[in-house]
């Protein structure tokens, strides 16, 4: 994707309507309007959407703090509290630690208008890509070619005209079963044993995401928040099936980014499901089916019954 500006107008981050206020220092604020298109089956904003906002605010901070170096998200964790159903989500990010090879950022997520309670808490680790190894190749989020970093940026696309999950093309994977992690024997990736509340599904459902410009980041790979969303939706669907159709709400999400997904489609498959009456967890492997089933990400999700 030729980058004059990231994100371009016809991009999922633009259609989400994200705004950023970046001081150019170690803090930033990002906001996202809540529309029906970003809500999950339980009527709350997808964790993957909140993760996208957190990733964007973290990326803005990292780009400012690490200049002239660049960065890639290594992991992202999110704990959500009261579900957000309308209004605006706001993520306030700040640096926890700046190291030689990593940057750790935390983000407090609130619902506006709302009370003082947090809606979620997020942390991210960014791997530093030194400029002298070709790290910084693209402009930071929201910065146009040749321009300075604006203090406030609105991505401002046309907006979503349908559910986000449909807009980015997440569908059931119809291809042959794949072995997600070539390094792991198939027998060791079998689903967790049955439990009282979350028995293992006899046939886990894999979901896929096409790799198109609409969801690519400035490196040409799938944007990290979209990977989180794919993992969340896959986990929720399989936990619901494992719980005999009981509705679930994802409340925790953690993504470990291992490699970029560039070819596609990305295919997400639950490799472990377990739980007790308080909730259940699913561990989802995301592979790039077009790149020899290369393992790109590991997503763990905790969900509670609703």
């Amino acid at each position: 994707m030729a980058i004059d500006r990231y994100p371009p107008p016809n991009h999922v981050l633009s259609d989400l309507g994200i705004e950023i206020e970046a001081s150019g220092g170690s803090t930033a604020v990002a906001r996202l309007p809540v529309t029906p298109h970003v809500l999950g089956a339980d009527g709350a904003v997808h964790l993957g959407v909140i993760a996208t906002l957190v990733d964007v605010v973290g990326g803005a901070i990292a780009a400012a703090v690490l200049v002239p170096d660049w960065m890639a998200t290594a992991d992202l964790a999110l704990q959500a509290f009261d579900p957000v159903r309308d209004g605006t989500i706001e993520a306030r990010g700040s640096v926890l630690r700046r190291g030689r090879t990593t940057l750790v950022v935390e983000a407090a997520v609130s619902a506006r208008p709302a009370g003082p309670e947090l809606a979620a808490w997020g942390t991210m680790t960014f791997a530093v890509l030194p400029a002298n190894t070709g790290g910084r190749q693209h402009r930071p989020v929201g910065v146009h070619r040749g321009g300075r970093r604006p203090r406030s940026v609105s991505f401002g696309g046309a907006g979503l005209d349908r559910a986000l999950v449909d807009a980015i093309g997440i569908t059931a994977f119809e291809g042959p079963p794949h072995r997600a992690d070539p390094a792991v024997p198939a027998s060791s990736t079998a689903a967790f044993p049955a439990t009282a509340t979350a028995p293992s599904s006899p046939s886990p459902t894999s979901l896929s995401l096409p790799v198109v410009d609409y969801v690519r980041n400035s490196f040409g790979a799938v944007q990290g928040g979209m990977v989180a969303l794919l993992g969340e939706v896959t986990a929720a669907r399989n936990l619901q099936a494992a719980g005999d159709g009981c509705d679930v709400r994802p409340v925790d999400l953690q993504v470990t980014y291992l490699a970029t997904g560039r070819v596609g489609p990305l295919v997400a498959t639950p490799r472990a499901v377990a739980g007790d009456p308080a909730g259940a967890i699913a561990v989802v492997e995301v592979v790039d089916a077009g790149a020899g089933d290369r393992l790109t990400s590991l997503v763990s999700v905790r969900a509670v019954p609703v």
Partner: peptide
Amino acid sequence: ASLTVRVARLDQVGPLGFEARVLRRGRVS
């Protein structure tokens, strides 16, 4: 540098078995 733990069950009997598998070996991590 960091770790994430998901605890699926608190009613453990023991002993517990731990199995580790390396997913990625990079230049710095």
